[in-house]
Design a protein around this nucleic acid. Structure first.
Lengths: 357, 357
DNA sequence: TTCCGTTGCTAAATCGTGTTAGCGCCCGAT
DNA sequence: ATCGGGCGCTAACACGATTTAGCAACGGAA
C-alpha cells in the first residue's frame, strides 16, 4: 500500500555507519559515548533527509513501553461535562508525546477486567481510572501491573494509588464566601442536604465535603445556616419540591443549592412564589453545568474543573511513571484541584450590606 | 513491580515443546501442519494454566498490526451528542478485540498531521476521521498509510475513502411524513431554510439534503410547502426571530424546523403569539438534541443516530482493512445511516384528518 | 539394501530498535 | 619493540512473537 517505512537501518546506511551508532546518536547518547562530531552530523542529516521516525512498536518491544496511557472510565466519554476530563487528559498526554487509549466499563466489572487486560497486552505505560461522578470505586487488583491514578474517585479498599479530586471542601467555602461577601448573614438556607452532617448521604463525597466547607466558612464569619431541605436525588424535580416546601414556612434571603440541577428546581419554585432572583433571593450553586449559563438570571456557581482534573491526572500519572517502583512515601496521596467560582447574575447584595463600608 | 509476564517461551517449556510449535498450536494452524493431538493438548493446557496472553506489541512488530484503530476528530469527544459516536465506535471495536486511540485536532491542520504521525508510529490498523457536524473536510494525504473511513464528513477533494453519514434526505422525508400521516396538507411552513433549493447555504449538507427529502415526500403526496423563513445560523434566537416574522403575516398549521435549537426559538415565538403546541400548530424538527425531551410539550424530532454512526464507521473500516489493497470497486462509497423518528408530543392530528378513514 | 515419502517437530530468520561488551587503531611511555 | 590506555565505532544479543525451510525417524516399496 504505502512505501515502506524508513527504518534506522536506512538511516545508518545513508550515513555510512552501523545501526547501533545511528541509534546512539539519535537517542542523544552520542556525546557521552564519544561519537565523533563528523559521524553525529552525518547521522542527523540522514535522519532528517529520510524523514526518519522511530517505530514505536519496536521500541516498545525492546523497552517495554508504548508511549501510551489508558483512560478507563465508567461512562465519561459520553457525557458533555465529564468529556472535558478526557480532553484535559488528551492534551496533557499529547504534550508529552503520549497517546490515549480509552475504554468505558459501564460499571461492568468483567468488562473492566477485559479492558485492563487489553491495555496491558498493549503495554500501556500507565492507567487512569476515572469516574463520571465523584465517588468511591472498587479498584481491580490487576491494576498493579502498571502505574495508575484514580480520577474523580477514591478507592473503597486502602490502596497505594494516588487520586485526583475536585476540592469540594474549598468549593463549599467559596460558595459561602460568595454570599458573605455580598453581605448575607441571615436567611441562608441549603437545598439538597443539611443542615447538619447527619443529614447527608455519607456515600456522596461531594455532599459531605461541600457541606463541611459551607459550615466552616459561615461559622468563621459567625453566621449560622438558617435551615435546610434535603433532596432524595439531586434532580430538578426534587429541588423544586424541596424549595416549595421551604417557602411555605419561611422567606429565605439566600439559597445554597447543592448542584445546578437542584438550582433549576429552586428557580422554578421561587418563580411560583413570586420571588425574584436575585432581588429577593440570592442563589448560589455547584457544578457549572451548561444549563447554568442558559437560565435567566444566569446562575452563579462553583465549577467542577473537569478539564483541569483530566490534566492533573496525567501530570500525577507521569510522576508515578517516573519514580516507578521507587516508593517516595507518596503512596495513596490525594490531589485536590481547585473549583473556581463562576460569578454570574444570581447573587445580589444583601440589604444589610448597605451598612458595610 | 509486577511478576514478569508469561511468554510463549514459558508455555513451550511447560508443554515440553519448542516455541514455534506452541505458536502454531495457539494460532490454530496446528491441525493443518499436522501437530499431534498429544502435543496440541499439552500446549493448550499449559497456556491455560499459565494464563498465557500474547504480547500484542510483539505480534505487532512481527506482523505490522496492532489491533488498534485511531479515531481522530475535530472535537467530538467533548460534545455530549457526538460523544455517542465515540461510544459506538468504542463498542464495535471492542467486540473485535480492538482498542481505540483518540485524538482531537480542534481544526488545526498541523495538529492533525502530528496526530496522524503519532498513530502511524504506533502502527494503527485503520483510521476514522470524524467531524462533529456533518460537513466536508480536507483529507490529509498522509492518511493513505492505513485504511481509513470518514465519519459524519465528506472529502473536499475526490478520494477513494468511504464515508459514513446520516441519511438526511430520508430524514427530511420522515419529517414530512410525520405531518402527512397526522393529516396535515395545508399551512406547512419551514423554519431554517427554504422554501426552495435556492434558499439554502450550499455548504451545509444537512440543510440541502433535509430540504430535498421534505420536498420529495410532500410533493409525492400532492402537498406544497406553504412558505418558509431562513435563519442565518441554526440557533434559538434566529429561530425565534424567523418564526415571529412568519406569525406576523400568517397562521401556520405546522412547522418543520431544521434543527432542535431553531425549534426552541419557534416554541417561544408561538407562545408569544398565544399559539399552543400542538393543538394550534404542530412542530417537527431534526437532531434529537437532549433539549428536545426537556421542553414541554416534548419535541417530535428526527434523530441524528450518533451511536450507530460510530458503530457503522468501525464496521466499514473493518471491511476496508480486510480487503486492504484489493480494490473491490467500492472506492469512495458513501454509507447512509437511517435517522429514526422520535415520536413525542409536538404533533397533533390536523382538523382535516377527521375526514380520513 | 537403498531410496523415497510421510509424519511431526524444530532451527533459524525476521520484524525494528536498544544496549552491552569488546575490537582495532593510534599514541605515548617504558 | 612492547605494552598500556584512551578513542571511536561495531558485533552480537535481546525483546516476544511468526513463519519458512528443513531435519530426524520411520515405514513401505523397489
Amino acid at each position: 500500500m504505502s512505501p515502506r517505512r524508513v527504518t534506522l537501518a536506512d538511516v545508518a546506511k545513508a550515513a555510512g555507519v552501523s545501526r547501533p551508532t545511528a541509534s546512539l546518536v539519535l537517542s542523544g547518547r552520542g556525546r557521552e559515548l564519544r561519537i565523533s562530531q563528523d559521524v553525529e552530523q552525518r547521522v542527523l542529516q540522514a535522519a532528517e533527509e529520510l524523514q526518519y521516525r522511530p517505530n514505536i512498536v519496536s521500541v516498545g518491544l525492546r523497552t517495554g513501553t508504548s508511549r501510551t496511557i489508558g483512560f478507563i472510565s465508567d461512562t465519561v466519554a459520553t457525557s458533555r461535562l465529564a468529556g472535558d476530563m478526557i480532553k484535559g487528559a488528551l492534551e496533557a498526554a499529547r504534550e508529552r508525546g503520549f497517546m490515549l487509549f480509552i475504554g468505558e466499563t459501564e460499571g461492568d466489572a468483567e468488562l473492566e477486567r477485559l479492558l485492563l487486560q487489553a491495555m496491558h497486552d498493549r503495554q500501556v505505560d500507565g492507567l487512569i481510572l476515572a469516574s463520571m461522578f465523584t465517588r468511591t470505586i472498587k479498584v481491580p487488583k490487576t491494576i498493579t501491573a502498571a502505574p495508575a491514578v484514580l480520577l474523580n474517585a477514591l478507592s473503597k479498599q486502602p490502596t497505594p494509588l494516588p487520586a485526583v479530586l475536585p476540592d469540594e471542601v474549598e468549593a463549599g467555602r467559596s460558595a459561602a464566601r460568595v454570599l458573605l461577601e455580598a453581605g448575607h448573614r441571615d436567611g441562608i438556607y441549603l437545598i439538597g442536604v443539611g443542615p447538619g452532617l447527619r443529614n447527608v448521604p455519607s456515600e456522596s463525597l461531594a455532599a459531605v465535603e461541600r457541606l463541611v466547607g459551607i459550615r466552616e466558612a459561615l461559622s468563621e464569619a459567625g453566621v449560622k445556616v438558617a435551615g435546610a431541605r434535603t433532596c432524595p436525588d439531586w434532580l430538578p424535580e426534587y429541588g423544586l419540591a424541596a424549595t416549595r416546601d421551604l417557602l411555605r414556612t419561611v422567606q429565605p434571603r439566600a439559597l445554597i443549592c447543592f448542584n445546578d440541577r437542584i438550582a433549576m428546581g429552586a428557580y422554578q419554585a421561587l418563580d411560583d412564589f413570586g420571588l425574584k432572583v436575585p432581588a429577593d433571593v440570592s442563589v448560589v450553586s455547584f457544578d457549572d453545568h451548561p444549563i447554568a449559563s442558559w437560565v435567566r438570571p444566569k446562575l452563579t456557581t462553583v465549577a467542577l474543573p473537569h478539564y483541569e482534573l483530566g490534566r492533573k491526572a496525567v501530570d500525577v500519572l507521569f510522576t508515578e511513571i517516573e519514580r516507578d517502583g521507587a516508593d517516595g512515601g507518596q503512596a495513596g496521596r490525594v490531589y485536590r484541584v481547585p473549583m473556581p467560582v463562576r460569578d454570574r447574575e444570581s447573587v445580589a447584595l444583601s440589604p444589610a450590606a448597605e451598612f458595610l463600608d
